[in-house]
Design a binder for these strands. Sequence first.
DNA 1: AAGAGGAGCAACCGCCCCTCT
DNA 2: CAGAGGGGCGGTTGCTCCTCT
Length: 370
Amino acid sequence: MGKHSCCYKQKLRKGLWSPEEDEKLLRHITKYGHGCWSSVPKQAGLQRCGKSCRLRWINYLRPDLKRGTFSQEEENLIIELHAVLGNRWSQIAAQLPGRTDNEIKNLWNSSLKKKLKQRGIDPVTHKPLSEVENGEDNKSQQPTNSLDMASGASTELNLNTDNPKPGPVSMEGGSPCSNTINSTNNNSRKDLFMDSQFPIQQLNWFTQTSNKAFDSEFPSTSMSTTLFPPFTTSFLSSHIGFKPSLTVSSDSPSMASFTPHSSSSTELQCIGSFFESSSYSWEKEAPNPIHLMETQGDETKWPEYLNSQLLMAAALQNQAPQTLCNIEIKSETDFFTNSSSNSMWSFNQHQQQQQQEALQNSDLCAYGHI
DNA sequence: AAGAGGAGCAACCGCCCCTCT
DNA sequence: CAGAGGGGCGGTTGCTCCTCT
């Protein structure tokens, strides 16, 4: 227990990542996948802890990340999910395509908590503050979140407790969730969303019935109506979404420069081309910054740009991101291989259509298997 | 214009769980 | 079965930027 072996190693860099480090990590994972994270730094030539590499990849370099501010719908969804799951950020993040647990956690701590308080809702219990204050004496007997409350109230909310592990999503033919919350089984709660088959309509129903105050605050954000049109399959069926983020316009000059060279266009060339063409602004820690283009228009962080490039390529490959890198990426990068569910695409279908159109209109060539 | 304070974000830390030997 | 090692997660910290005074 305690620190990992890799953390004992000396002379490991800490702090912010430089573009060179990002490039090394990106190249390595793009080419080989991450495999064992502890061996990634060595193989990639990084003076970093494996965990640090993993974190960097998950929170920043992963191509499916959606950068930018959270939409109102996303915020509302986070609030509703938090009401049920509490601070289980990874499970909440699993329901928000392209968002990381860290991102959501930061949003919650910096913004959403305050918003709820301003609206008179206790961010811990999701109950009205007045009610929480009045019930302070009985706090020890009160559940801390809605799910606990549900179990305590013997709410018959059907949930699957037999599938503790995430698995292929198959919502056709009816919901696999066919059981009830077992208040005595911690795993059932823990895995509530891990199985990715939690019926969001029931969640919505649940939050509606268990927290009237919340709905009074968000009367128009009922997920079943706003976020979730009547899908027969659960929106929540995808572990991690794959929502392209076109934060850089398709007619950006720099984007055109990302088109891979015709001669021996290897993945390294593509990535290198990207880095060279990126308008990524790194000023403080890059002693020898990669050649940066003059920013034309709004300055864009390169990961956003990266997202666009990788995802556009994926989109051009018939929305088959798993073939994007011609590699297998395991573990939390399941978005490459487990993105078979189309439900996530429904989430922002309109946006994607726009992106598709942008792709078709642009002359950007897919760089195929990078 | 400069300093203080707050907000937002990236990254680290410590712990837990799981798997392998 | 127990210990070691790796992956993952939630909490926390620290830095940077922005706004206000």
